[in-house]
């Protein structure tokens, strides 16, 4: 079974985002970029499926600027087999990404597509579900456990209040939540080896997909700041404050 894993290049999760002064977005010039953390979990899960003999080949795909090659190389160094970069210097929304991925899935015929549940830049949490709709496949979102058996997959999902397990007919979509696994680091020999793994380049036009955005950004602002309050010296003073604030009678 082939596994397709889409990955996205985003602002590194340790970097504090700075809103640009002109209000057009978040400043991404000269800051560290990395693979979206949920996508790393998706790559790791695919590799584990391959190590178990369930997956035969792992294809990683990214939609973005040329620099997304680095992100794909990271996935190849972790253990993916080959990569496809669909080059777009303009931002592509989840709907456009899902349409492109649907075309890739039609060509590659994977048994599973494993995606991060959301990208930590736009926090949309849409692409996997949209891809499921476009392909007419089942979706196991926010997965904390994935078990493939025969022509179905059982996915345990992180839902409000606990866990839920669903059984999907394959091919199917899985989106990852944090506790699914802990991604490995690529070893130096594997980083070297990844350089010679195949990476194909495409454009949205090659797939005949219109990726014109449907949402326009009116402005991007800093959220309202909270003012730091007061420090109290001991528990009695804290209780006094709680009384003033009406928290306790």
């Amino acid at each position: 079974m082939k596994v397709l894993v889409p990955v996205k290049r985003v602002l590194d999760y340790n970097v504090k985002p700075r809103v640009k002064a002109d209000g057009t977005g978040v400043d991404l010039a000269n800051v560290k970029m990395s693979m979206n953390p949920f996508d790393e979990i998706a790559v790791e899960e695919a590799i584990r499926l391959k190590e178990k003999g369930v997956a035969s080949e792992i294809v990683v795909v990214s939609i973005g600027e040329q620099k997304a090659q680095e992100t794909l190389r990271t996935a190849l160094a972790m253990g993916a087999d080959r990569a496809i970069l669909i080059v777009s210097e303009d931002k592509v929304e989840p709907l456009g990404v899902a349409k492109l991925l649907a075309k890739v899935a039609e060509a590659e015929q994977p048994g599973l597509v494993i995606l991060g549940k959301q990208a930590i830049d736009d926090d949309n949490n849409q692409t996997g579900q949209m891809l499921g709709a476009l392909l007419g496949w089942g979706q196991g979102t926010f997965a904390s456990k994935v078990e493939v058996s025969g022509d179905s997959v059982e996915v345990t999902r992180e839902v409000d209040g606990g866990l839920e397990t669903v059984k999907l007919k394959t091919p199917a979509i899985v989106t990852t939540d944090l506790r699914l696994n802990e991604p490995r680091y690529a070893s130096l020999p594997n980083i070297m080896k990844a350089k010679s793994k195949p990476m194909e380049q495409k454009t949205p036009a090659d797939y005949g997909v219109d990726v014109t955005p449907r949402l326009s950004i009116v402005k991007v602002e800093e959220p309202a700041k909270r003012q730091a309050g007061v420090k109290v010296a001991d528990v009695d003073e804290l209780i006094g404050k709680l009384k003033t604030l009406g928290v306790v009678a």
């Binding site: 602002l11 504090k16 985002p17 809103v19 978040v26 930590i120 830049d121 736009d122 926090d123 449907r214 949402l215 326009s216 950004i217 009116v218 402005k219 991007v220 602002e221 800093e222 959220p223």
Partner: peptide, 18 residues
């Protein structure tokens, strides 16, 4: 036109849907 958080709420985007 709607506002929504991006970057874990470190920025608020105003977006207009066509």
């Amino acid at each position: 036109t709607f506002t929504r958080p991006i970057y874990a709420g470190n920025a608020i985007a105003t977006v207009k849907s066509s």
